[in-house]
Design a protein around this nucleic acid. Sequence first.
DNA 1: TTGAAAGCGCTAACAC
DNA 2: GTGTTAGCGCTTTCAA
Lengths: 326, 326
Amino acid sequence: MPTIYEVAALAGVSPATVSRVFNGMNVSPEKSKLVRKAAEELSFTPSRTARTLRRQHSEVIALVIPDIENPFFTSLARGVEDVAQAAGYSVVLCNTDENAEKEARYLDIAISDNMAGVILAAAGDHSDLSKLIERKRPIVAVDRGPHGFDIDAVMVDNRAGGHAATTELVEQGYKRIACITGPSDVETAQQRADGWREVVQAAGMPATDDYLKYSDYRVAGGEAAMRELLDLPEPPDAAFITNNLMSVGALQVLAERGAVPPAVGMAVFGDLPFAGFAPKEITVVHLPARHLGVTAAKLLLDRINGDDQPARTIVLRNEVGSGSRA
Amino acid sequence: MPTIYEVAALAGVSPATVSRVFNGMNVSPEKSKLVRKAAEELSFTPSRTARTLRRQHSEVIALVIPDIENPFFTSLARGVEDVAQAAGYSVVLCNTDENAEKEARYLDIAISDNMAGVILAAAGDHSDLSKLIERKRPIVAVDRGPHGFDIDAVMVDNRAGGHAATTELVEQGYKRIACITGPSDVETAQQRADGWREVVQAAGMPATDDYLKYSDYRVAGGEAAMRELLDLPEPPDAAFITNNLMSVGALQVLAERGAVPPAVGMAVFGDLPFAGFAPKEITVVHLPARHLGVTAAKLLLDRINGDDQPARTIVLRNEVGSGSRA
DNA sequence: TTGAAAGCGCTAACAC
DNA sequence: GTGTTAGCGCTTTCAA
């Protein structure tokens, strides 16, 4: 592995000059040319490790998400990636599997690797960000809130979305509307269910524990929950499902039992993945997944570049529509 | 940021001892305890950057894939991740977007960051791995071949899969079977189409250019290609589609035109994403996506650990079945 | 078992 | 505009 010293020797300049060339600083055209030629000849690749050690921060940002197999998060990731790339940063994806320990490990790595910053969709409501904050590493929370830490956040209005989706179901004439939501320690799960509860109670419909299933935001979880609901002595005639993946599972069960929407009503928080084939009668709260990522990345870059204003929270709009997007 | 020096000072030992404690080397229990306490007190996190610089390799492996929004690759990624994690490595995902430049950039970063190794699903057939190889960084090719470089590879039998899928269509009685495949510079696209061509020609059916569409392995591409096929003066009565995402687009078009399978026959190489709702009459060549990842990661770890045998190529089985998995 | 010290490859004062 | 040099935080000989 050639180093700047070897390049410098070959080019007949000092190591500092080589460094300057590779960092776009002022160097005379002649020397610059010499350096480039020497570097080429040795197929020199600068060591980002050494540079990071010296500068105390790298050009990579960590994107920590709970489920890399969920299209919502990959779409969000694309948003982050696109703006990060444009600014010269690379993004490393860290999959926590909704697991607090894995998350903690990745956050440690972010520190330990001197990463420029982290964008976090938290695995639960107990993420410990104190070390990051102590060390002044910028963090922005995305999709899921900052849980008491004073940091930037980019969110959607979960309660309002749950409210709108459920309202739609009521207006469609359904009378017993259940809710399948995510883990009880994930705030989005609570908030979306809150929206549901408000509407259902206001309409004088049952909002019992039987009708509110906590699950896991995954396909299999949605399947299981929907099965339980349909097996109730008095099964619901519609369900509000608080994420995309669980709705896939739920739909599956409905199909098995020959009760595809609108036979049983369905509203979903989040876009159905690869929705081309889903029934049109499903109500969908569209989420600006990519835009969440873009926005979070912009906030993070601001902070990395020294922006020092008080923490901001940005709430993006989500809009209710039908099964497939316009 | 506390360093081992500060921990050493507080614990009353040398920096070397602190290092040894954190690397599980032989240190007397008493000193060890002192060090741990001091580290805890200072909330010390060792710098992986410094360690990497010193050791000349990190504990991270790069997984370079063409499309992070394709469930096939995220599933593969999960496989990689699971075995890497278990061995103490972290995985960073690099999304190349089927773009050779982005890929080259990421491969450079892998070198520059002293990563332990890379698993590559190549964006085209011209990836330049020479720098990696020069520097003796282990690489394993996954899903797509090594293109002349002498490295480990984990593949599926694309030609055989294309053959089997198309044969199924023939047996179902379709007479004019088209093929929608991926970019012409991606070998899997060629090989799968080769399998199709063999069967179709052997059956005395047309295998004209009209019936073979090169596309982009993406939803929109599948959509466009299927549209073109159906608009032909003599449209096909079935299609073999060489990846999961394009089949989603194709299915969409078929649905629009009221020609959902089996009205028009369809066979797909790769599992339909979130398939719960797809017609059962679609023939699917199931791909062991996760297993590809697992296998690739194991090979890579072998190499990282110094395994020095000649390059191996492992071909995993894929099996033909119906729309949804058992 | 432990410590002293060199050095991984780079950048950023500082001097010229 | 350019060179010299110290040092980022760690690991690893080498000696004791």
